[in-house]
């Protein structure tokens, strides 16, 4: 099926100057014999230079598979089966990450694009000190000796506000708290000064007071270093705090992308609207005398990626759905110049 890409330039490989990454109809499937789990099946999104794009969705929406596709870290049998991932290198050249060779990809990971995960304990090596791991990353990409690498590693720990960095360099991950480990992950990710940081639920496992510290740190680093961030999360509260733009995913597709204020002020997809309506809000959901009103859940449940509906994947749960929605998958439409939605009936919202 032909997909419209409203924000794309005329030339297929054109990438506007302020865009670092653009996914065009990315499709990543997990193929098991005759069956394919279409975990990502039409993701179109744009990350602008120096900005944070939050990718928000519930379990199974494909948000993590999208970020792993960009990093080309998909586990077997996951495979990019279609679409493009246009990325602007720091030297200005544009590459398609979807088709780049493994060798070129290795040079990009860490140096151009870095990633942090929800649980630092699973991505830090428990057998090496924090300092060794940061130094290894630096020396993998840059011709520096151990001494200089250690100096830079120490500077990285200072950058992420880890107290007593000299002592911490020689510690192992298990000797640190969850918040401290996430700071180490960030230091490791930023060690080679990447242009794009992919953060997959980086604060989900943290307590709220520690989450606030990490979000604060990421905002400060972005201001100082100017990196772009693709921030994957399920938490719309975190989205409101960190994002410049938001892409909402549902059943393997981006169903809406907009600047953060536009999205929260006037969601133009019924799924986004439904999500915002079902987060408890005492001011809205309790009467003046304190009596609770019932919440407005989205009825039903998410479709299986093994059996996606023919038309709009949200139609079976959508209060606005009409027969047309069940047969024709909506294209990405402009609700306004900067506001994209995959809903035929967005004008009703």
């Amino acid at each position: 099926m032909a997909m419209s890409t409203p924000n794309a330039g005329n030339h297929p490989d054109a990438l506007a100057d302020d865009i670092v990454l653009r996914a065009d109809n990315l499709r990543t499937h997990f193929i098991m014999g005759a069956r394919a789990a279409k975990s990502v099946d039409g993701v179109t999104l744009t990350v602008r230079r120096g900005q944070t794009l939050a990718v928000v969705g519930e379990s199974g929406s494909g948000k993590s598979v999208t970020s792993l596709s960009i990093m080309r870290l998909l586990a077997h049998p996951g495979r990019i089966v279609g679409g493009r991932l246009l990325y602007r290198m720091r030297d200005g050249g544009v590459v398609d990450l979807a088709t780049l060779s493994d060798k070129r990809m290795r040079a990009i990971r860490g140096k151009e694009i870095a990633m942090i995960f929800q649980e630092p304990m699973t991505s830090l090596n428990p057998l090496y000190t924090v300092g060794d791991q940061i130094m290894e990353m630096i020396r993998l990409h840059e011709p520096v000796d151990r001494h200089e690498a250690r100096t830079r590693a120490r500077r990285m720990l200072e950058l992420v506000e880890i107290p007593a960095p000299d002592k911490r360099l020689d510690q192992y991950p298990h000797e640190m708290s969850g918040g401290m480990r996430q700071r180490v992950m960030i230091a490791l990710a930023l060690a080679c000064n990447p242009a794009l940081l992919i953060a997959d639920e980086p604060t989900t496992a943290l307590d709220v007071t520690i989450q606030a510290q990490i979000l604060d740190l990421m905002r400060r680093l972005q201001r100082e270093i100017g990196m772009s961030i693709l921030f994957v999360t399920h938490n719309l509260g975190v989205v409101a705090e960190i994002a410049h733009e938001v892409a909402v995913m549902y059943a393997g597709r981006v169903v809406e992308q907009a600047p953060v204020h536009d999205l929260f002020a006037r969601p133009r997809h019924p799924y986004t609207k439904g999500l915002l309506a079902c987060i408890p809000d005492a001011k809205r959901d309790r009467a003046d005398d304190g009596t609770r009103k019932m919440l407005n859940p989205i009825p039903g449940s998410v479709p299986s990626v093994l059996a996606l509906p023919a038309g709009c994947a949200f139609a079976p749960r959508c209060p606005l759905a009409e027969p047309h929605c069940e047969t024709a998958p909506p294209e990405l439409l402009n609700a306004s110049p900067e506001h994209l939605t995959r809903c035929w009936r967005h004008e009703l919202l």
Binding site: D207, L215, L236, G237, H261, F264
Partner: peptide
Amino acid sequence: RALLATAPVPDPTVRRERVILQGDI
């Protein structure tokens, strides 16, 4: 007060008094 100030709310227009606690529990 710190807990309430740091709990993220789904509203980008909210600019709250930031009470960010230093350090770990």
